[in-house]
Write a protein that binds this DNA or RNA. Structure first.
Lengths: 319, 319
DNA sequence: ATGAAAGCGCTAACAG
DNA sequence: CTGTTAGCGCTTTCAT
């Protein structure tokens, strides 16, 4: 289809070797030959065939990614960021929808064999994980722990950022802080700052559970939260916080003056809310930079790399 | 890294050719040899190198996909469905974040040259389209029209499904139908059923514009919609309809008895709303099946393939 | 400064 | 029934 090195060589009357030298700007080729070859290459619209190069060098620029479509918005952003970063580092992300059974994993790995050495699996199905050990590829497992000689896990500790958020509220003078939501992994981090050496006296933690964790749940919980007398509220999910902001707006409750609001997930939309929502989020950039680094330098087995969520302070909880 | 045909041949004491015959189940190999070769292959965990195969056959199982991360939820579902379908048809989707300038397109196409012959671009940037004609690859452009010898466009007519939705409302006996939203492409389809030969007498179209088209806008518009005396409402976007459903629930307005509700986008969440939301959506399955077919049989140039949105009747508008 | 040739893993034409 | 071999496009070693 497209012109090859051989074509360029023939058209410019030199050997393949010289073409290569000219095109790669290597030494050992005369000025004149170099210029002519380059002109011809441009003329023929020569572009290297990466697949052939990979074959010859026994390397691969492909990286397999398995992604579950039903993941939360935050994971989508992680995926798109990862794709962009891999592109930037010269890798080609190869996507697949998640295998649902052992045999589907087998088929997938087989299909990608000889193409990619590294497979990134976001939110893998735990039941299938033990199967991975049998394959030659290296796996990077996101958000699931599994020890195997060819698996490297990336985990994110939810609690750190949540605790940081609460500490920030305490430091800003808030004392009666309520957590609202239904996601268990939020609890530990929320409670921690209330039993630390430097916990301000009078600090009090409340909890208002919700059925689910959507916009409406946040809106619905508004009355109860205000009735509790809290001066700050942490929502398990940004969408809930958004619902509450709407309630506050309707009731003319000033945020953050009367009550400070913090969410979790750092959704795109929350940043542009009125007021911009403080939130706890995953360190997407750092995680993905790490992944690219792992791929570049070799993925270690039997390893877990732990990250921490971080707190993003915005106007909804004081400036 | 992994065993090759040659390895299997050596280990089983036959030629590469025979290994191939045995593994592919071709005729011309003795029962016994076949069995032994297969055993050895399994033992060595042989898996074919697809890249080498592609090189040899001058074909490619890779399909490039350019996707803009900031697209609506409906596009994400289209993407994931497409990936699954391509996988199912034996293709490997190669993803890239969208190029932002002419030179980035050039670089991307260059990188993929020799790897993939087909590039699917979802929601391409119009300004860059003219550049595509210069490349050898075939492009499938989703949701943007551009005539070139190597471009095939896929368009979806918004109006058909919207008109169908309105007709369904009219047929169910509704007469005063309001459209609420701010998306221009919804208008034509909405108005059409009101001026057709078989339009029921008394049918009346209203329009209530909204600032944006989010959950809150639907909720906010609730009072005005009810005040208009409409017995059915079409929202430009599902999220707005969801906001309105919330308003109706709060005000104890029975849906669809007092007012029928229809949305647009066929979001996942709307299906599981209370009541399940009738909605107009893209024929994702048919579009993606078509795309796979195009790739399989060759992508025609200078072509536009038109699809139509369709109406999904659920409880929020009768049933 | 330049070229010939081997070989990555695979397929297929051609011999035996 | 089985084996040999050329060649896809590229990189690299070894000659010239």
């Amino acid at each position: 289809m497209s012109a090859t090195l051989k074509d360029v060589a023939k058209a410019s009357g030199v050997s393949i070797r010289s073409v290569r030298r000219a095109l790669k700007g290597m030494s050992g080729v005369s000025e004149e030959t170099c210029a002519r070859v380059r002109a011809v290459a441009k003329e023929l619209d020569y572009v290297p065939n990466i697949a052939a190069r990979n074959l010859r060098l026994q390397t691969s620029s492909f990286v397999g990614i398995i992604y579950s479509a039903n993941s939360a918005d935050a994971y989508k952003r992680r995926l798109y960021d990862l794709i962009a970063r891999l592109n930037g580092a010269g890798y080609e992300p190869l996507l697949s929808s998640p295998p649902k059974s052992f045999s589907e994993v087998e088929e997938l790995v087989r299909r990608w064999s000889g193409i990619t050495n590294v497979i990134i699996w976001m939110n893998p199905a735990v039941a299938i994980l033990p199967a991975l050990a049998a394959f030659q590829q290296r796996f990077i497992l996101i958000e699931e722990e599994f020890q195997a000689s060819n698996c490297c896990c990336i985990s994110v500790d939810r609690s750190i950022g949540v605790a940081e958020a609460v500490r920030s509220l305490l430091k800003a003078g808030h004392r009666k802080i309520v957590r609202c939501g239904n996601i268990p992994t939020r609890e530990a981090g929320f409670l921690r700052p209330f039993s630390e050496p430097d916990t301000p006296s009078g600090a009090k933690a409340l909890f208002i559970p919700s059925k689910s964790s959507d916009y409406e749940d946040g809106y619905q919980a508004g009355a109860r939260i205000m009735a509790s007398g809290a001066d700050a509220v942490f929502f398990d999910v940004d969408r809930m916080a958004m619902g509450f902001l709407r309630y506050a707006h309707e009731q003319k409750i000033p945020v953050p003056e009367r009550i400070a609001v913090v969410g979790f997930d750092d959704d795109n939309t929350s940043v542009s809310a009125a007021p911009p929502l403080s939130s706890v989020g995953h360190p997407i950039r750092r995680i993905n930079e790490k992944i690219v680094e792992l791929i570049r330098n070799g993925v270690p087995g039997n390893t877990t790399i732990a990250f921490e969520t971080m707190f993003f302070l915005r106007e909804s909880s004081g400036k």
